[in-house]
Design a binder for these strands. Sequence first.
DNA 1: CGATGGGTTGAGCACGATCAATGTAGGTGG
DNA 2: CCACCTACATTGATCGTGCTCAACCCATCG
Lengths: 245, 245
Amino acid sequence: VCRGQIVTNPLILNLEQRDRLSPEERQALENAFVRTSTVCRGEDIVREGERPAESKVLLEGFAARYKGLRNGKRQITALHVTGDFVDLHSFVLKPMDHAVLALTPCRLALVPHQALRDLTEQYPHLARLFMLSIALDGAIHRQWLAMTGKAMALSQTAHLVCELYLRLHAVGKADNNSLNLPLTQPELGDVLGLSAVHVNRTIQDLRRHGLLTWDRNKVEILDWGRLCDVAEFDPTYLNLNPEPR
Amino acid sequence: VCRGQIVTNPLILNLEQRDRLSPEERQALENAFVRTSTVCRGEDIVREGERPAESKVLLEGFAARYKGLRNGKRQITALHVTGDFVDLHSFVLKPMDHAVLALTPCRLALVPHQALRDLTEQYPHLARLFMLSIALDGAIHRQWLAMTGKAMALSQTAHLVCELYLRLHAVGKADNNSLNLPLTQPELGDVLGLSAVHVNRTIQDLRRHGLLTWDRNKVEILDWGRLCDVAEFDPTYLNLNPEPR
DNA sequence: CGATGGGTTGAGCACGATCAATGTAGGTGG
DNA sequence: CCACCTACATTGATCGTGCTCAACCCATCG
């Protein structure tokens, strides 16, 4: 798998948004991808409580981390797109504290924890980039905490669109103010902490304000400036500037 | 600083809840503490947007990470106690995406990023423990996301008490179902995403249910079992079991 | 002593939940 | 090809948790 033919390893694409990689580091990363797997929409990629022996990079598709609550509800705590490690933290955090769900059919690359261990010992710079990757998850969690805690539904929803547009854009999966968002309204409710009904009304509000169009999965941002303004969106937390780490 | 006299370096205490450290690793960590500083209650330990050249370990006191919103509100995204790195992620995440506030007078140890870099290159196991520390922040963020998104105020507040009791207990700062919680109700509101008034009513509810007493800063848990039940608390995400990482 | 900051209480209001019904697009089997 | 089914989108009506505003109490401290 992954020999020369695939010029754009999405993990490398992702990391290179944040720092430069040496050719050896790139090669070492590619070699760590031992095997790919495919998961159908609606299936769990990892289950809560498991202790996986490898971490998984999303090559294609959308995935979500979620925690179930006793009352049958679930909260989605993160969304993942092409190039994201969906469970890098399982390298150090032993039992998974959440499950990971395929929101669309997903193609994944597996990186054994042993390979991660070897990589970090041979390439301290890669170790720092893995730390970065885990820390970035945390930064996004913090942003979501701020939004769910203190923001109105409209602002929160707008914020999610802004974030996902930039994250997809960074890996070449969105352009021209248009993105593919294959989340149903009930799923969006689980992300935003809103009921499906209210998500629907909030999206209608965004449309009514002329901020975007949203048909099926296709979202088109009509006014990026005003959308960011409504969302109070500041992309700093995404660390999309390459710098030495 | 820190020569033999201080037997219980709180960072080491904290890490040893999760894995064993070799004597050399312990020594190397102690040597990385170059200097301590003190911050008064209400002062920022780090400000949003800064690029600190060192990370800080809380030796004594309570601190909070927070993000300000445009409307003047702020959301606290994390609470820190003795033994916690308050900004380890600033080692890799360049501009701080949040500020860190001293909720009480705080004593801090500074660890220069250069020292962290050296430590991770010489002791890959410590590199993994730093990853663990960052990943643990993320796990706690996820738990908070699940609570703010899907839980009632009562459950959420109970959950916070359960979490802090265990975290304080782990570093020897709480015992006998009793803990010191030096947070004002407005501050708790900023943690929980509730108004100060509602925090007050929720605490009264907890008292009325006979779950705890809460006088000034002193919280006494009267019925741990029922409190956990109300909170839907499961401590797995805190990773308080030592295992090889 | 008054000032300050936090805790407590009450009244009215609003955002978003819940329940229930209807619409609509794909997908399947007769 | 149509009848049916399922899942998601949409709409309306009602309800409730938690917010806001506005007092008031109480302890600490200069």
